[in-house]
Write a protein that binds this DNA or RNA. Structure first.
Lengths: 232, 232
DNA sequence: TGCCGTGATCTGTGATCACAGTTAGAGTGA
DNA sequence: TCACTCTAACTGTGATCACAGATCACGGCA
């Protein structure tokens, strides 16, 4: 353990494999809804776009397929799954119970740093939402940021990971519409629910935090279902 | 669309890729605890054992790594993650809330066929447990069977999938000990809790079902923690 | 005896090729 | 104009090779 003092400064530099980076890129596309349900995705063209060979893309896609965020059809075509309305309802129920639970835990275990982060991302989302001409893709991103700041405050890495997988499935269905439709954002429901959640977590009211997240998820889901673009 | 009548009988024969089969095999090893935490797994040797090239194994392993059921260390060695006791406590808390929720939903939505399946697997586990010389690996398998029969009765494929991923993480820690140690099985806690769950689901008592599953999970977790073989 | 360099052998990662199956579209016939 | 056929260009899957980095045992030096 006798090493030059200068070497104590270098950090282990997390070597990220190309496969992981490809996974991150594709996951971001899915969560933010830039990939529509039913849209096909070719390994080779994706590899070309990402500037790598097909191998890293294969790994990324196989992981996403395992998460059911992508599916490979019988025709051997990889695509974003099309969700029936009953499947969407199941997903929404599960999200309410799990994300609601995470919010409740956040109200119990949040530290001061968590509060700072949550308050800041709540303010950012509110500002964007009340702007004269809201940037919808940015609002989607800020919404995600707020939610995960809340979930991280639950201090349960496993729970956060599960929720991330749920968002991977829900993203294409929910955020695709939200990115192009200012209606729901303008209505201000999300912003109001977020304020409720922030208040509940600040005061340590677990039940209110759960209810706020549940209302937010329900509101978005009802909006999607009312548009009637889902199969079945 | 004009084809011989006999052909209408053949099912589409789900063409399982070698990668999927490799995944299934490795996942079973993990859930049943035949792979110990810290144990290394070489792609090439695994491929040789499975009688395929390294490619299908790569896909299977990358999926399991994505689920955090395996990890690739900085040394580039794939191994079963070693879990600290605090990580194990986090995992246990999450399992209680999610599997408990699934049991409660099962009590609400179970059909007659679900009841038959649950009752049968409860009886099988009880019989094995009360045998003069219980077959421990078989008891582990029957325990898994009972739990998933319950969870399937919740009629939420997404929930079941999430729980499967949790068992992938918990299997090596819990079932490794259980496979070799008759103490807990002999004590009969699991069998008693299972009977509670069966009764609760039969009568539609969601809270009791949740409590029964929670007690079962807690009992197993306490047993593991009391053995003190976890890091930290 | 203790330490450090060195090379053989392992590791996962990535690229490339081969293959079977599917799809789309041009071409041909009526 | 429509229906059919056949081919060419795709699809994912799997095998094989190449490579950089890690590990470990051996051997020489202090």
């Amino acid at each position: 353990m006798n090493r030059p003092a200068a070497l104590t400064l270098v950090e282990p530099l997390d070597r990220q494999t190309l496969g992981e980076r490809a996974y991150g890129q594709l996951a971001e596309l899915l969560i933010s809804g830039r990939l529509a349900p039913g849209e096909k995705l070719s390994l080779r063209t994706a590899a070309e776009v990402l500037g790598v060979s097909i191998m890293p893309v294969r790994e990324a896609v196989s992981r996403l397929v395992a998460d059911k965020a992508l599916e490979v059809a019988a025709n051997r075509a990889v695509r974003v799954p099309v969700m029936s309305s009953s499947q969407f309802r199941d997903l929404t129920r599960v999200r309410i119970s799990i994300e609601g639970h995470a919010a409740a835990e956040a109200a119990r275990h949040r530290g001061d740093d968590d509060m700072v982060a949550i308050a800041r991302s709540e303010a950012a989302m509110r500002a964007e939402s009340e702007a004269a001409m809201p940037d919808l893709p940015r609002a989607v991103e800020l919404n995600k940021h707020f939610h995960f700041d809340v979930y991280n405050a639950a201090r349960s890495p496993i729970l956060v990971e599960i929720i991330r997988a749920l968002w991977l499935k829900a993203g294409p269905v929910i955020n695709l519409d939200l990115r192009g439709n200012p209606d729901r954002l303008a209505k201000g429901d999300a912003v109001r629910f977020h304020a409720d959640v922030l208040r509940a977590i600040t005061s340590g009211d677990a039940d209110a935090a759960r209810a706020g997240i549940a209302a937010d998820i329900t509101g978005a889901a009802d909006f999607i279902l009312s548009r009637g673009s889902l199969a079945d």
